[in-house]
């Protein structure tokens, strides 16, 4: 079943075309990686799906429901049930690890006892149970990544959007976190839409790699279970 359906989407910023008639379908539990150089429009796709910006033309549906079309955001971001990990992680500096993860649950009006349970489960899942009361500034880069992941996943989103989340990490940590993301994706059964400019990382993470250039999709490759083999 299609979980995300982008149809002929165009987006321009002050005359510069960021996306030019892009269509993309994502199936449930799929791991799609968008690969391309800086400025090719990969992040714009994530921001359109998240609902931060509206397409100039075309439409976007999530879970079979129309959420944006031609200059209009029909469903605001908070009603799309998506998780997102930002390139700079965007952890809220004034909240603790627990506060960061709990924020969305509070916004949904969840009761305290249930919130506590969900936060604890998520912290255990990402191996951060001992750091619940720390502020983001008191964590290492890898720990911050885990918190960002936990925050994005705690609401059990339909789709997890990841915008070059590992780009600022050293190779060793990058490789370790790739495995963790894959483990979490499999455990939770979430659909993954992942953006990177690193070819190696793309083929490591994806079931399908979408190559982009100058606002257009250049090609789509299906990745078999063994790394790097494409169809």
């Amino acid at each position: 079943m299609k979980i995300v359906d982008m149809h002929s989407v165009t987006k321009t910023y002050g005359g510069a075309t960021a996306l030019d008639g892009v269509s993309l379908e994502i199936a449930e539990r799929e791991r799609i990686v968008i690969l391309g150089p800086s400025g090719c429009g990969k992040t714009t796709i994530l921001r359109l799906i998240a609902g931060f910006i509206a397409p100039d033309t075309g439409s976007i549906s999530i879970g079979g429901e129309l959420v944006s079309k031609k200059g209009r955001i029909i469903k605001p971001p908070e009603e799309r049930n998506l998780g997102m990990v930002f390139q700079d992680l965007a952890l809220w500096p004034h909240l603790s690890v627990k506060g960061n993860i709990e924020f969305g649950l509070r916004a949904r009006g969840m009761r305290k006892a249930e919130r506590e349970t969900r936060v604890r489960t998520m912290l255990d899942l990402v191996g951060m149970a001992d750091y619940a009361d720390r502020k983001p500034a008191e964590l290492s880069g890898g720990q911050q990544q885990r918190v960002a992941l936990a925050r994005a996943l705690v609401l059990e989103p339909k789709v997890l959007l990841m915008d070059e989340p590992l780009s600022s990490l050293d190779l060793e940590l990058n490789l370790r976190l790739r495995k963790e993301i894959l483990r979490l994706q499999e455990t939770l059964g979430v659909t993954l839409l992942y953006v990177t400019h690193d070819r190696d990382e793309a083929f490591d993470m994806a079931t399908r790699v979408v190559s982009m250039r100058r606002g257009r999709i250049e090609g789509v490759k299906t990745v078999s279970s063994s790394r790097g083999e494409t169809a």
């Binding site: 998240a50 931060f52 605001p76 908070e78 799309r80 997102m84 930002f86 700079d88 916004a107």
Partner: peptide, 11 residues
């Protein structure tokens, strides 16, 4: 980005 991260879950 801090506000966008919150917009995903809140008005």
């Amino acid at each position: 980005r801090l506000e966008e991260a919150a917009r995903l879950v809140s008005n």
